[in-house]
Design a protein around this nucleic acid. Structure first.
Length: 420
DNA sequence: TCTGGGGTCCTAGGACCC
DNA sequence: TCTGGGGTCCTAGGACCC
Protein backbone atom coordinates (compact mmCIF):
# COMPACT_ATOMS: atom_id res chain seq x y z
CA UNK A 1 0.00 0.00 0.00
CA UNK A 2 1.08 3.54 -0.77
CA UNK A 3 0.00 6.95 0.42
CA UNK A 4 0.40 10.23 -1.37
CA UNK A 5 0.55 13.29 0.86
CA UNK A 6 -0.01 16.47 -1.12
CA UNK A 7 -0.02 19.99 0.27
CA UNK A 8 -3.20 21.93 -0.46
CA UNK A 9 -2.64 25.05 -2.59
CA UNK A 10 0.90 24.93 -1.27
CA UNK A 11 2.42 28.28 -2.30
CA UNK A 12 -0.73 30.21 -1.39
CA UNK A 13 -0.87 28.57 2.02
CA UNK A 14 2.84 29.26 2.65
CA UNK A 15 2.08 32.94 2.14
CA UNK A 16 -0.79 32.71 4.61
CA UNK A 17 1.05 31.02 7.43
CA UNK A 18 3.11 34.09 8.22
CA UNK A 19 0.42 36.56 7.27
CA UNK A 20 -2.78 35.33 8.91
CA UNK A 21 -4.75 38.35 7.71
CA UNK A 22 -4.71 36.63 4.30
CA UNK A 23 -6.85 33.77 5.61
CA UNK A 24 -9.97 33.32 3.49
CA UNK A 25 -8.81 35.98 1.05
CA UNK A 26 -8.16 34.98 -2.58
CA UNK A 27 -4.40 34.72 -3.25
CA UNK A 28 -2.43 34.07 -6.41
CA UNK A 29 1.30 33.44 -6.71
CA UNK A 30 3.12 34.41 -9.89
CA UNK A 31 5.91 32.78 -11.88
CA UNK A 32 9.36 34.31 -12.18
CA UNK A 33 9.20 37.75 -13.75
CA UNK A 34 5.65 38.04 -12.39
CA UNK A 35 4.45 36.60 -15.70
CA UNK A 36 1.95 33.79 -15.12
CA UNK A 37 -0.22 32.49 -12.30
CA UNK A 38 1.43 29.35 -10.90
CA UNK A 39 -0.59 28.87 -7.70
CA UNK A 40 -4.01 29.87 -6.44
CA UNK A 41 -5.82 29.70 -3.15
CA UNK A 42 -9.22 27.97 -3.17
CA UNK A 43 -10.94 31.37 -3.25
CA UNK A 44 -8.92 32.42 -6.31
CA UNK A 45 -9.76 29.15 -8.07
CA UNK A 46 -13.45 29.81 -7.47
CA UNK A 47 -13.06 33.23 -9.07
CA UNK A 48 -12.05 31.45 -12.29
CA UNK A 49 -8.33 32.24 -12.33
CA UNK A 50 -6.65 29.49 -14.34
CA UNK A 51 -3.36 27.73 -13.64
CA UNK A 52 -0.66 29.08 -15.93
CA UNK A 53 -2.74 32.03 -17.06
CA UNK A 54 -0.72 35.14 -17.99
CA UNK A 55 -1.37 37.68 -15.29
CA UNK A 56 -2.11 40.53 -17.70
CA UNK A 57 -5.14 38.54 -18.90
CA UNK A 58 -6.74 38.53 -15.47
CA UNK A 59 -5.94 42.08 -14.35
CA UNK A 60 -9.63 42.97 -14.20
CA UNK A 61 -10.62 39.96 -12.09
CA UNK A 62 -7.73 40.67 -9.72
CA UNK A 63 -8.75 44.26 -9.27
CA UNK A 64 -12.48 43.63 -9.02
CA UNK A 65 -12.04 40.98 -6.31
CA UNK A 66 -9.13 42.51 -4.47
CA UNK A 67 -7.06 39.37 -5.03
CA UNK A 68 -3.77 39.26 -3.13
CA UNK A 69 -0.85 38.93 -5.57
CA UNK A 70 2.53 37.51 -4.57
CA UNK A 71 5.74 36.93 -6.52
CA UNK A 72 7.06 33.42 -5.97
CA UNK A 73 9.26 33.11 -2.90
CA UNK A 74 11.09 29.82 -3.32
CA UNK A 75 13.34 30.44 -0.33
CA UNK A 76 10.18 30.25 1.78
CA UNK A 77 8.42 27.42 -0.10
CA UNK A 78 11.48 25.17 -0.12
CA UNK A 79 12.02 25.61 3.59
CA UNK A 80 8.34 24.94 4.36
CA UNK A 81 8.50 21.87 2.13
CA UNK A 82 11.47 20.59 4.14
CA UNK A 83 9.48 21.02 7.35
CA UNK A 84 6.48 19.15 5.98
CA UNK A 85 8.69 16.26 4.82
CA UNK A 86 10.44 16.05 8.20
CA UNK A 87 7.05 15.89 9.91
CA UNK A 88 5.94 13.01 7.68
CA UNK A 89 9.26 11.20 8.24
CA UNK A 90 8.39 11.22 11.93
CA UNK A 91 5.75 8.57 11.15
CA UNK A 92 6.89 6.88 7.91
CA UNK A 93 10.57 6.17 7.21
CA UNK A 94 10.29 5.14 3.55
CA UNK A 95 9.22 8.12 1.47
CA UNK A 96 9.81 9.42 -2.01
CA UNK A 97 9.90 13.19 -2.41
CA UNK A 98 8.00 13.53 -5.65
CA UNK A 99 7.82 17.33 -5.89
CA UNK A 100 8.06 20.40 -3.70
CA UNK A 101 4.57 19.70 -2.33
CA UNK A 102 4.09 15.94 -2.73
CA UNK A 103 5.46 12.91 -0.90
CA UNK A 104 4.78 9.23 -1.61
CA UNK A 105 4.90 7.00 1.48
CA UNK A 106 5.55 3.27 1.46
CA UNK A 107 2.97 1.82 3.86
CA UNK A 108 3.91 -1.82 3.27
CA UNK A 109 6.07 -2.00 6.42
CA UNK A 110 2.97 -0.87 8.37
CA UNK A 111 0.87 -3.84 7.23
CA UNK A 112 -1.68 -4.77 9.85
CA UNK A 113 -2.03 -1.27 11.22
CA UNK A 114 -5.02 0.97 10.60
CA UNK A 115 -3.53 2.90 7.65
CA UNK A 116 -6.43 5.31 7.45
CA UNK A 117 -5.94 6.26 11.07
CA UNK A 118 -2.17 6.58 10.62
CA UNK A 119 -2.60 8.97 7.69
CA UNK A 120 -5.13 11.06 9.56
CA UNK A 121 -2.62 11.39 12.39
CA UNK A 122 0.08 12.44 9.93
CA UNK A 123 -2.24 15.02 8.47
CA UNK A 124 -3.04 16.49 11.89
CA UNK A 125 0.60 16.60 12.96
CA UNK A 126 1.80 18.28 9.75
CA UNK A 127 -0.86 20.93 10.18
CA UNK A 128 0.00 21.47 13.83
CA UNK A 129 3.78 21.51 13.39
CA UNK A 130 4.08 23.47 10.15
CA UNK A 131 0.75 25.18 9.53
CA UNK A 132 0.48 23.53 6.11
CA UNK A 133 -2.77 21.66 5.34
CA UNK A 134 -2.28 18.46 3.36
CA UNK A 135 -4.54 15.83 1.79
CA UNK A 136 -3.71 12.14 1.83
CA UNK A 137 -4.73 9.46 -0.65
CA UNK A 138 -4.13 5.76 0.03
CA UNK A 139 -4.07 2.96 -2.54
CA UNK A 140 -2.44 -0.34 -3.55
CA UNK A 141 -0.39 1.37 -6.29
CA UNK A 142 1.11 4.82 -6.64
CA UNK A 143 -1.27 5.61 -9.50
CA UNK A 144 -4.28 4.68 -7.34
CA UNK A 145 -2.89 6.58 -4.33
CA UNK A 146 -2.60 9.60 -6.60
CA UNK A 147 -6.18 9.13 -7.73
CA UNK A 148 -7.33 8.70 -4.13
CA UNK A 149 -5.55 11.93 -3.27
CA UNK A 150 -7.47 13.73 -5.98
CA UNK A 151 -10.70 12.45 -4.47
CA UNK A 152 -9.55 13.44 -0.96
CA UNK A 153 -9.01 16.99 -2.19
CA UNK A 154 -12.41 17.25 -3.85
CA UNK A 155 -14.63 15.71 -1.22
CA UNK A 156 -15.16 16.41 2.43
CA UNK A 157 -13.53 13.47 4.14
CA UNK A 158 -12.41 13.26 7.74
CA UNK A 159 -8.99 14.92 7.93
CA UNK A 160 -8.84 15.14 4.11
CA UNK A 161 -7.81 11.49 3.93
CA UNK A 162 -9.29 9.03 1.45
CA UNK A 163 -8.51 5.38 0.96
CA UNK A 164 -9.11 3.66 -2.39
CA UNK A 165 -11.83 1.04 -1.78
CA UNK A 166 -11.11 -2.69 -1.62
CA UNK A 167 -14.50 -4.06 -2.62
CA UNK A 168 -14.67 -4.75 -6.33
CA UNK A 169 -17.95 -2.97 -7.01
CA UNK A 170 -16.87 0.16 -5.08
CA UNK A 171 -13.52 0.13 -6.85
CA UNK A 172 -15.22 -0.07 -10.24
CA UNK A 173 -17.65 2.68 -9.41
CA UNK A 174 -14.85 5.03 -8.33
CA UNK A 175 -12.81 4.28 -11.46
CA UNK A 176 -15.78 4.68 -13.77
CA UNK A 177 -16.56 8.13 -12.43
CA UNK A 178 -13.00 9.30 -13.15
CA UNK A 179 -12.39 10.69 -16.65
CA UNK A 180 -9.25 9.23 -18.19
CA UNK A 181 -7.50 12.60 -18.44
CA UNK A 182 -7.56 12.89 -14.66
CA UNK A 183 -5.37 9.82 -14.32
CA UNK A 184 -1.77 10.52 -13.30
CA UNK A 185 0.39 10.11 -16.42
CA UNK A 186 -2.40 10.68 -18.95
CA UNK A 187 -2.25 14.20 -20.32
CA UNK A 188 -4.40 15.96 -22.87
CA UNK A 189 -2.78 14.44 -25.98
CA UNK A 190 -3.00 10.90 -24.79
CA UNK A 191 -6.52 11.23 -23.43
CA UNK A 192 -7.63 12.41 -26.88
CA UNK A 193 -6.00 9.40 -28.46
CA UNK A 194 -7.58 7.11 -25.87
CA UNK A 195 -10.99 8.66 -26.49
CA UNK A 196 -10.41 7.84 -30.14
CA UNK A 197 -10.23 4.14 -29.35
CA UNK A 198 -13.24 4.24 -27.05
CA UNK A 199 -11.51 4.69 -23.68
CA UNK A 200 -13.02 7.54 -21.70
CA UNK A 201 -12.78 6.56 -18.03
CA UNK A 202 -10.12 5.23 -15.68
CA UNK A 203 -12.14 2.01 -15.46
CA UNK A 204 -12.01 1.50 -19.23
CA UNK A 205 -8.27 2.14 -19.23
CA UNK A 206 -7.76 -0.36 -16.42
CA UNK A 207 -9.68 -3.02 -18.39
CA UNK A 208 -7.92 -2.43 -21.72
CA UNK A 209 -5.40 -4.94 -23.03
CA UNK A 210 -1.97 -3.65 -21.98
CA UNK A 211 -0.44 -4.45 -25.40
CA UNK A 212 -3.07 -2.27 -27.06
CA UNK A 213 -2.20 0.67 -24.81
CA UNK A 214 1.45 0.17 -25.58
CA UNK A 215 0.78 0.06 -29.29
CA UNK A 216 -1.37 3.20 -29.31
CA UNK A 217 0.66 5.19 -26.76
CA UNK A 218 3.85 3.79 -25.18
CA UNK A 219 5.30 1.65 -22.44
CA UNK A 220 4.78 4.27 -19.72
CA UNK A 221 1.07 4.53 -20.49
CA UNK A 222 0.78 0.74 -20.43
CA UNK A 223 2.27 0.77 -16.95
CA UNK A 224 -0.27 3.36 -15.86
CA UNK A 225 -3.10 1.17 -17.13
CA UNK A 226 -1.75 -1.84 -15.23
CA UNK A 227 -1.38 0.20 -12.03
CA UNK A 228 -5.01 1.30 -12.35
CA UNK A 229 -6.02 -2.35 -12.22
CA UNK A 230 -4.29 -2.65 -8.84
CA UNK A 231 -0.97 -4.24 -9.84
CA UNK A 232 1.96 -2.13 -8.63
CA UNK A 233 4.64 -1.49 -11.27
CA UNK A 234 6.55 1.27 -9.50
CA UNK A 235 7.87 1.23 -5.97
CA UNK A 236 9.14 4.01 -3.77
CA UNK A 237 12.27 5.59 -5.14
CA UNK A 238 14.45 6.45 -2.22
CA UNK A 239 16.96 9.29 -2.07
CA UNK A 240 19.59 7.23 -3.88
CA UNK A 241 18.36 8.45 -7.26
CA UNK A 242 20.77 10.95 -8.72
CA UNK A 243 19.73 13.67 -11.10
CA UNK A 244 20.57 13.51 -14.79
CA UNK A 245 20.30 17.14 -15.76
CA UNK A 246 20.34 20.48 -13.99
CA UNK A 247 19.00 23.62 -15.63
CA UNK A 248 19.15 27.23 -14.54
CA UNK A 249 17.40 29.64 -16.79
CA UNK A 250 15.30 32.75 -16.61
CA UNK A 251 13.52 35.12 -18.92
CA UNK A 252 14.60 38.74 -18.72
CA UNK A 253 12.70 41.60 -17.14
CA UNK A 254 13.51 43.70 -20.21
CA UNK A 255 14.59 43.00 -23.76
CA UNK A 256 18.29 42.18 -23.98
CA UNK A 257 20.14 43.29 -27.10
CA UNK A 258 23.64 43.83 -25.73
CA UNK A 259 26.14 41.02 -25.31
CA UNK A 260 27.29 42.62 -22.07
CA UNK A 261 23.88 42.04 -20.47
CA UNK A 262 23.47 38.59 -21.98
CA UNK A 263 26.90 37.54 -20.78
CA UNK A 264 26.05 38.54 -17.22
CA UNK A 265 22.83 36.54 -17.33
CA UNK A 266 24.61 33.44 -18.72
CA UNK A 267 27.36 33.76 -16.12
CA UNK A 268 24.75 34.02 -13.37
CA UNK A 269 22.95 30.88 -14.55
CA UNK A 270 26.30 29.07 -14.70
CA UNK A 271 27.16 30.17 -11.15
CA UNK A 272 23.80 29.04 -9.76
CA UNK A 273 23.93 25.71 -11.59
CA UNK A 274 27.49 24.97 -10.42
CA UNK A 275 26.63 25.88 -6.84
CA UNK A 276 23.58 23.60 -6.85
CA UNK A 277 25.59 20.73 -8.32
CA UNK A 278 28.35 21.10 -5.70
CA UNK A 279 25.69 21.02 -3.00
CA UNK A 280 24.67 17.59 -4.30
CA UNK A 281 28.23 16.34 -4.56
CA UNK A 282 28.15 15.99 -8.33
CA UNK A 283 30.23 16.95 -11.33
CA UNK A 284 29.02 17.58 -14.87
CA UNK A 285 30.57 16.09 -18.01
CA UNK A 286 28.67 18.31 -20.41
CA UNK A 287 27.41 21.88 -20.50
CA UNK A 288 24.82 23.42 -22.80
CA UNK A 289 23.81 27.04 -23.21
CA UNK A 290 20.70 28.33 -24.93
CA UNK A 291 19.43 31.78 -25.86
CA UNK A 292 15.96 32.68 -27.09
CA UNK A 293 14.01 35.64 -28.43
CA UNK A 294 10.38 36.29 -27.41
CA UNK A 295 8.29 33.59 -29.11
CA UNK A 296 5.08 35.54 -28.56
CA UNK A 297 6.30 38.51 -30.58
CA UNK A 298 5.60 37.28 -34.08
CA UNK A 299 6.42 40.74 -35.39
CA UNK A 300 10.05 40.42 -34.29
CA UNK A 301 12.84 38.37 -35.84
CA UNK A 302 13.31 35.12 -33.95
CA UNK A 303 16.54 33.44 -32.96
CA UNK A 304 16.57 30.34 -30.77
CA UNK A 305 19.83 28.49 -30.50
CA UNK A 306 21.75 26.19 -28.22
CA UNK A 307 25.25 24.79 -28.11
CA UNK A 308 26.98 22.28 -25.91
CA UNK A 309 30.47 21.11 -25.09
CA UNK A 310 32.19 18.37 -23.11
CA UNK A 311 33.71 19.21 -19.76
CA UNK A 312 36.94 17.26 -19.40
CA UNK A 313 37.47 16.39 -16.64
CA UNK A 314 33.92 16.50 -15.25
CA UNK A 315 33.62 19.48 -12.97
CA UNK A 316 31.48 21.60 -10.68
CA UNK A 317 34.06 24.37 -10.36
CA UNK A 318 32.42 27.74 -10.95
CA UNK A 319 35.22 29.50 -12.90
CA UNK A 320 35.53 26.55 -15.30
CA UNK A 321 31.79 26.36 -15.88
CA UNK A 322 31.38 30.12 -16.24
CA UNK A 323 34.21 30.32 -18.76
CA UNK A 324 32.80 27.51 -20.87
CA UNK A 325 29.25 28.89 -20.65
CA UNK A 326 30.41 32.30 -21.86
CA UNK A 327 32.40 30.77 -24.70
CA UNK A 328 29.32 28.86 -25.89
CA UNK A 329 27.05 31.85 -25.40
CA UNK A 330 29.36 34.04 -27.43
CA UNK A 331 29.15 31.55 -30.30
CA UNK A 332 25.35 31.73 -30.26
CA UNK A 333 25.00 35.47 -29.87
CA UNK A 334 23.85 37.46 -32.87
CA UNK A 335 23.55 41.25 -32.74
CA UNK A 336 20.30 43.05 -33.56
CA UNK A 337 17.96 40.53 -31.99
CA UNK A 338 15.72 41.19 -29.00
CA UNK A 339 16.55 38.34 -26.65
CA UNK A 340 14.12 37.31 -23.94
CA UNK A 341 15.63 34.30 -22.22
CA UNK A 342 18.82 32.37 -21.67
CA UNK A 343 19.85 29.31 -19.72
CA UNK A 344 22.60 26.90 -18.81
CA UNK A 345 22.17 23.13 -18.59
CA UNK A 346 24.59 20.70 -16.96
CA UNK A 347 24.39 16.99 -17.81
CA UNK A 348 26.31 13.70 -17.99
CA UNK A 349 26.75 13.85 -14.24
CA UNK A 350 28.98 11.78 -12.04
CA UNK A 351 28.62 11.64 -8.29
CA UNK A 352 31.31 10.70 -5.82
CA UNK A 353 34.72 10.04 -7.31
CA UNK A 354 35.41 11.97 -10.51
CA UNK A 355 37.70 10.67 -13.22
CA UNK A 356 40.70 13.00 -13.41
CA UNK A 357 42.42 14.16 -16.55
CA UNK A 358 46.05 13.71 -17.53
CA UNK A 359 46.00 16.82 -19.64
CA UNK A 360 44.18 19.40 -17.55
CA UNK A 361 46.30 22.38 -16.58
CA UNK A 362 44.14 23.28 -13.59
CA UNK A 363 45.11 22.58 -10.02
CA UNK A 364 42.11 20.61 -8.89
CA UNK A 365 42.96 20.61 -5.19
CA UNK A 366 43.18 24.37 -5.24
CA UNK A 367 39.89 24.58 -7.15
CA UNK A 368 38.15 22.42 -4.57
CA UNK A 369 39.43 24.55 -1.70
CA UNK A 370 38.46 27.76 -3.48
CA UNK A 371 34.91 26.49 -4.02
CA UNK A 372 34.65 25.37 -0.41
CA UNK A 373 35.62 28.83 0.82
CA UNK A 374 33.24 30.51 -1.57
CA UNK A 375 30.34 28.23 -0.61
CA UNK A 376 31.02 28.64 3.09
CA UNK A 377 31.08 32.43 2.87
CA UNK A 378 27.89 32.50 0.82
CA UNK A 379 26.22 30.08 3.19
CA UNK A 380 27.15 32.13 6.23
CA UNK A 381 26.74 35.66 4.90
CA UNK A 382 23.92 35.06 2.43
CA UNK A 383 24.04 33.81 -1.13
CA UNK A 384 25.61 36.23 -3.57
CA UNK A 385 28.02 37.69 -1.03
CA UNK A 386 30.95 36.41 -3.06
CA UNK A 387 30.48 36.06 -6.82
CA UNK A 388 32.47 36.17 -10.07
CA UNK A 389 32.75 39.60 -11.67
CA UNK A 390 31.33 38.14 -14.88
CA UNK A 391 27.89 38.25 -13.24
CA UNK A 392 28.07 42.03 -13.20
CA UNK A 393 27.27 44.44 -10.41
CA UNK A 394 24.27 46.31 -11.76
CA UNK A 395 21.99 43.58 -13.09
CA UNK A 396 18.94 45.80 -13.43
CA UNK A 397 18.91 45.73 -17.22
CA UNK A 398 18.19 42.00 -17.42
CA UNK A 399 17.24 40.60 -14.00
CA UNK A 400 13.70 39.41 -13.39
CA UNK A 401 10.83 41.35 -11.96
CA UNK A 402 9.58 40.35 -8.53
CA UNK A 403 7.41 43.20 -7.44
CA UNK A 404 5.25 41.42 -4.88
CA UNK A 405 7.64 39.24 -2.93
CA UNK A 406 6.97 38.34 0.70
CA UNK A 407 9.88 38.18 3.20
CA UNK A 408 12.05 35.07 3.50
CA UNK A 409 10.56 34.52 6.94
CA UNK A 410 12.33 31.28 7.79
CA UNK A 411 15.76 31.59 6.18
CA UNK A 412 16.95 35.18 6.80
CA UNK A 413 17.47 36.67 10.23
CA UNK A 414 16.67 40.17 9.06
CA UNK A 415 13.37 39.00 7.57
CA UNK A 416 11.98 37.13 10.57
CA UNK A 417 8.29 37.71 11.19
CA UNK A 418 7.59 40.16 14.02
CA UNK A 419 4.83 40.13 16.56
CA UNK A 420 3.56 43.29 18.14
C1' DT B 1 3.28 46.37 -22.42
C1' DC B 2 2.66 41.98 -20.30
C1' DT B 3 3.13 35.19 -21.69
C1' DG B 4 7.55 30.36 -15.93
C1' DG B 5 11.09 27.07 -14.59
C1' DG B 6 12.69 22.46 -13.84
C1' DG B 7 12.46 17.77 -14.45
C1' DT B 8 11.63 12.50 -16.40
C1' DC B 9 10.99 8.79 -19.79
C1' DC B 10 10.18 6.69 -24.41
C1' DT B 11 10.60 6.18 -29.41
C1' DA B 12 12.03 6.61 -34.10
C1' DG B 13 15.50 7.31 -37.11
C1' DG B 14 20.19 8.03 -38.55
C1' DA B 15 25.00 6.80 -38.32
C1' DC B 16 28.00 3.55 -37.56
C1' DC B 17 29.93 -1.36 -36.92
C1' DC B 18 30.76 -6.44 -38.60
C1' DT C 1 14.50 -8.75 -62.34
C1' DC C 2 17.37 -9.38 -58.64
C1' DT C 3 20.53 -5.56 -53.61
C1' DG C 4 21.41 -9.20 -46.03
C1' DG C 5 21.07 -9.65 -41.27
C1' DG C 6 22.13 -8.21 -36.87
C1' DG C 7 23.69 -5.09 -33.70
C1' DT C 8 24.95 -0.47 -30.83
C1' DC C 9 24.91 4.32 -29.86
C1' DC C 10 23.30 8.97 -30.20
C1' DT C 11 19.95 12.61 -30.85
C1' DA C 12 15.74 15.08 -31.56
C1' DG C 13 11.25 15.30 -30.59
C1' DG C 14 7.20 14.24 -28.14
C1' DA C 15 4.78 13.03 -24.26
C1' DC C 16 4.18 13.45 -19.37
C1' DC C 17 4.74 15.57 -14.40
C1' DC C 18 4.84 19.52 -10.72
Amino acid sequence: MYALADCNNFYANCERIFEPSLTRRPIIVLSNNDGCVVARSQEAKLLGIQMGQPVFQCRDVIKANNIVVRSSNYALYEDMSRRVINSILHYVPDVEIYSIDEVFCDLNPMAGRDLDQLCRTIRKSVLQWTGVPISVGIGPTKTLAKLANRIAKKGSFVDSTYSFPNKDEDRKSVLSSCPVDEVWGIGSRWSKRLNGIGIRTALELSLARPEDIRRHLNATAMQTAIELSGIACQGIEDGGIQRKTLVRSCSFGKVVDQWWDMSQAIASHAVRAAEKLRGEGGAAGRISVFIQTNRFREDLRQHNASASARLLPSTSVTPVIVEEALRLGRQLWKPNYAYKKSGVMLSEMTFGQVQGSLFSDRNSEQDVRLMQVMDQINMKMGSGTLYPAAQGVDRSSWSMRRSHCSPRYTTRWEELPRTV
